[in-house]
Amino acid sequence: MLELEEKRLTIAADGVHAWRHKDLLDTDTLSREDIDLVMSQADAMTEIRTRPVGKVATLRGITVVTLFYEQSTRTRASFEVAAKAMGADVVNLSATGSSVEKGESLIDTVRTLEAIGADVVVMRHGKSGAPYLAARYTKSSIINGGDGRHAHPTQALLDLYTMRQHFGDLAGRRVVIVGDVMHSRVARSNIYTLLASGADVTLCGPATLVPRTLESGGEGPRCRVSTNLDEAIEGADVVMALRIQKERQEGGLIPSLRDYIAGYQVNARRLARAKPGALVMHPGPKNEGVELAPDVADGVGSVIEEQVTNGVAVRMAVLYLIATARRP
């Protein structure tokens, strides 16, 4: 059996810290220096995106495949735009209409992509851990575009990037993540980048959707857990609302959307308890009028569109670091 151990590659980037990761599967194995490197590369990419043409040819000759087993609008489009902005060739594959529908296994699929010449495979999959399996069986670099409820590393990096644009250093900043934490790959990946950045993280939501084990220490990361948003939001620098999925309600995890809104919607009254100028974030797609009150979603603190814009720069940075590290 092949070992999971991440195949590490080395390049000198910025002459400071070298990117050593073949794959980006989650944020948990990124060092503080890795994260800083992504951030500084993303700055460079942001600069490129503001130029009149907004494109470079750095990744010419590199083939990026987006392999999506689940629906996605923004993540997939964001990766595609990012790869094309650096001159990479992009192939988009969906589970529907591909050999996956004919019963091909994940391993066969990624091996086929490798044989076709995929340098980087951006993968989204409904089952937690699927990209780890893929990464073990292909030489192509795997970027996790979201796996089950486990991880969504580029979302966490773009969220961090957005926060750093406003605050610089995040040390001591209070971040409240509110909503369906249990099923959220966004929350899980954010926890690592935020804790690595010295932020103080509170997870808030209905007791059925916020795993208590996240505060228990032990092997897990250390966060505060709250079921009371009015208290948790007190003095927050950032309020990040997560998407509530309708099927959670159908599964009986919350009594009703009405009940959820009453307890956990981020509205103007609650936001007033946060620090003045607190950021309001959402990974999208929003349920209109559920996670965020409309005036808050479009209010002064809302950086939701910045998140989307930054997503392209951060994904350019990640693609650049990973693709460049592959070069001999």
Binding site: S128, G129, H150, R188, T213, S216, E219, G220
Partner: peptide, 11 residues
């Protein structure tokens, strides 16, 4: 169900 399942995002 516990610390490890939460960490791995597994039901």
């Amino acid at each position: 169900e516990g610390v490890v399942s939460e960490r791995l995002g597994l039901a």
